Amino acid sequence: MLSDSEATELLSFLRRDMRADVKGQATEYILGLTGNREGCRYLRTKPDFLKALVTLTADPSIAIVKDCYHALVNLSADETLHKPLVKEAAILPTMFHNLLDPEYMFADRVSTILTNLSRHEATCREVFQALQEQEISLAKIVEIFCTEGFNKKASLHYLGPLLSNLTQLPEARQFILDKERCVIQRLLPYTQYEASVTRRGGVVGTLRNCCFDYAHHEWLLSDAVDILPFLLLPLAGPEELSEEENEGLPVDLQYLPEDKTREEDPDIRKMLIETLLLLTATKKGRQIMKEKNVYPIMREFHKWEKDLQVISACEKLVQVLIGDEPEPGMENLMEVNIPEGVEQKFKDLDAKEQEEIEKEKQELLKEEAEKHPNTVPEVLER
């Protein structure tokens, strides 16, 4: 790493009034440092360099701005840099200001940085608070996200994961679930947004987080929101169901065409199933989902699915859908107090299940290698 004198000299080159070629070489060097963990950790101890990078995102040279953003994306991917970037480099006001500009060409980098910084709860809260302080509000982020072509120079797909991260917080979920704002209804169509897996996954993650607030389940499943078809349709395939099964389904899931395809991303499929499982936590939720014939969709999905972790999630949901109702006093599965010994038993079972899944994956890889000895088998884990 740099000596103190070298660091001081390099920092002197990272000024707005410095010659462009000198600045360019300095930002290029910093970008190189952020390409590995050791370099990132070194810069963690140099808040002045972080501040300089944020300042130079407003440089007249596009090449320099690009290098700065690339470096900040790398730095924000390292959790240990979150506090220095937010507290010492004061990155958030600049990022939010630039995000609001519909002509800003680096808005995708901005949304990626904000997503990285909001991944963990501590700095997620800082990001949420900065939203309020900048008088931007979560409402504005949702509006930008839902306005197709808000920025002609950026896709803004990473605002989806940003919303998902923010809904770790009860305050953000409260806003999304406000019955007067109709926010969640605006987000639902993006569960089938074909142009971006990032945007789709972000919205599904947001819905899953919101479903941890079981007090809203009945409203979410009611006609006022009608969340169920938006969660089930990506999981439904072209299989032919019986007349009786079709008639019990929500209208959007009845008699699907022969070319109907399922969600291609296994992580999103797993999140969709986890969201459905959360909606079965209450007696009313289970009742509605049974009445809406969720089981036949999941039965056919289970036959089709190949990813072992998604299959495991599907089986847990099916067990709830076809199982007996819990005993009186245990109807709300989120309020049941599990004895410590039993909870540890569940954890052990989960660990054993994950071990078996991993074992099956390795066996599949071995079989694939034996079938095709001259090729490298595709890794099943994402």
Rank of each mutant, 00 (worst) to 15 (best):
E243G: 13
D21N: 12
A154K: 00
F13K: 15
R125P: 06
A281R: 14
G149V: 03
L187W: 03
D307C: 10
C146G: 05
D67C: 08
F230K: 09
D265T: 13
A351M: 14
L50K: 02
A89Y: 03
F230I: 01
V376M: 12
L117T: 04
T123H: 03
T80R: 12
P93K: 03
E368G: 06
K260R: 13
E243A: 15
Q192S: 12
T45Q: 12
Q344Y: 15
N209Y: 07
L228C: 04
R262H: 05
I30R: 00
G24W: 00
C210R: 06
T115K: 04
I297N: 02
P229V: 05
D267W: 07
R15I: 13
S242G: 11
D213M: 06
K51H: 06
P170G: 05
Q192I: 15
D324R: 12
C182G: 09
V54N: 02
F49M: 06
V320T: 09
P266A: 14
S76V: 00
V54I: 05
V197M: 08
H302L: 15
D67T: 04
D17W: 01
I141T: 01
F49G: 00
I144W: 01
Y104E: 13
L235K: 02
I30Y: 00
T8W: 06
G160V: 02
L241D: 00
E6H: 04
P189V: 08
V225T: 06
R109E: 11
E244M: 06
R119E: 08
P328I: 04
L233G: 08
A26Q: 00
Y214N: 09
S137D: 10
L177E: 04
L365C: 10
A63Q: 08
K140L: 09
S155C: 11
N209H: 10
K260M: 10
I273L: 13
G323A: 11
Q344S: 13
D267Q: 13
E194L: 12
E370I: 09
Q134I: 03
Y190G: 00
I311H: 05
P266N: 14
E240A: 09
T123M: 07
E381P: 05
A26F: 00
D101A: 12
V225H: 05
E28A: 12
I288Y: 08
T198Q: 07
V73A: 01
L249F: 02
V318G: 01
E180K: 10
N332F: 09
S164Y: 03
M18Q: 14
K366Q: 10
C314Y: 01
H120W: 13
E358V: 09
E325D: 10
L235S: 03
P326C: 07
Q185A: 15
R208C: 08
K371N: 15
C124A: 15
E360I: 07
L81D: 01
D101F: 03
L72R: 03
A154D: 00
E325K: 09
K179T: 10
V318K: 04
